[in-house]
Design a protein around this nucleic acid. Structure first.
Lengths: 228, 228
DNA sequence: TTCATGCTTCGGTTAGCATCGAAGTATGAA
DNA sequence: TTCATACTTCGATGCTAACCGAAGCATGAA
């Protein structure tokens, strides 16, 4: 009689290179079709289909049909957090797949972590939010302060929509490149959406990298300065 | 050219049932021999040896020779944190290996998480430490307050020894049964050691469960009351 | 209806790896 | 030295699962 949950099954799900590549691609937060995922994994459509049904059975991904396409996404934030922490661990043990390519600095600066901002910018943002006492709490039990809520509303965040959701508004996510926490949760998602909508930043195609415009950099730094 | 660290390799390492069982056994924090680990995994010594060398090559475990024995342990806190978070995720997706056996409530109440206290008691302890402002901080960047440090010294904790180590003094670890954070890091380890040394609690054999004595319960509750 | 696209299912092949028996090495005890 | 214990290495086996070709199903366009 073994104790506790079975980590071998999820390990095995993530342990296959093709599946790991698909999951990493889905960390971009985009909904991708089976064909696209097969491409990034470098396998045929049949094989990809088999992998996708396994991942879905394991609760790691979900799909929604739209016409004759099937769009796959990670199931929820939890999966994103787990994958990001696995990446951090992998990096700490020297499991890398690349010879530190040209994309690498961009990824470390700012990238999508499923649905929120990660990398140097993500960590700096959380640091600033804490320093300004917009967010308070210990461990993963973060919460918006009252004054912080007002600031977010002033920024144009629809706070009531966020709090209605079942998932947490604020949550930490261990950044693999910075090895410190950045902000996840529905607020983290809303802030990234805001950056993109306001044109402060745009997503790179086929990558998790986020590129800030010059104006965006300025606005971001003004809002989330290091001094708080 | 794939981006980021390679999560497939660690996934594969953890994904084999025999290896997962060994790692889970090592979450007890005890140093175990190859023979013992082979027993818990239900495999022969040869097979276990092969698995152990793979885990060691992957940086998940380390060994120290002592006479003709080889004692294996998890490499460091990081591995423990990762495994615990994997257990939480596995539990959330319904990957369990047991029919909620009799040991289960004991594990959820108090157990070893590699080298610190987890379960209901672990979470309550961190809550109390935060409420009493012994510990402050956001996300994983926890720190002892000045007053908190004095309290720990009063309890008999050798604070200078803890701060000399390279690893963090305070750290959060996501509890798989409570789905909230408990205290890890060198302080978390020191506190658990103290409980065991003072006879407040003892470890169950062949299990991660921790059993508190009646006197221990009382002392623990007095120190870490919910009201703070 | 006819054709094209997107994806799944089936069947058969192949490769990798977990497994164990047997032999080899190292440490300690007698 | 001799034997026993603890573990590793080698070699062979067998099973699983990843993989793809081919066929089937569903949706949409013409």
């Amino acid at each position: 009689m073994k104790e506790g949950p079975d980590i071998a099954q999820i390990g095995a799900l993530i342990g296959d290179p093709a599946r790991a590549n698909m999951l990493t691609a889905l960390m971009s937060g985009k909904a991708l079709t089976a064909t696209e995922l097969a491409g990034t994994a470098g396998i045929t459509l049949q094989t990809a289909s088999s992998h996708l049904s396994k991942l879905e059975a394991g609760g790691l991904i979900g799909q929604r049909k739209q016409g004759r396409h099937r769009y796959f996404t990670l199931s929820d934030d939890e999966v994103g957090l787990l994958l990001e922490s696995l990446m951090g661990f992998a990096a700490s043990r020297g499991f890398t797949r690349h010879r530190t390519g040209p994309k690498d600095p961009a990824l470390r600066k700012a990238r999508v972590c499923y649905n929120h901002l990660a990398g140097d910018y993500g960590v700096r943002m959380l640091d600033s939010l804490v320093a300004e006492e917009v967010i308070a709490g210990v461990g993963d039990d973060l919460a918006l302060t009252e004054a912080g809520g007002e600031k977010m509303v002033a920024l144009g965040i629809d706070l009531s929509a966020l709090t209605k959701q079942r998932r947490p508004v604020c949550r930490t996510c261990l950044d693999w490149s910075e090895r410190r926490s950045h902000l996840a949760g529905s607020l983290g998602e809303a802030l990234l959406s805001m950056f993109l909508e306001k044109g402060w930043a745009r997503r790179e195609a086929d990558s998790r990298a986020i590129h800030f415009t010059a104006a965006g950099e300025k606005a971001f730094s003004a809002l989330f300065s290091e001094s708080g």
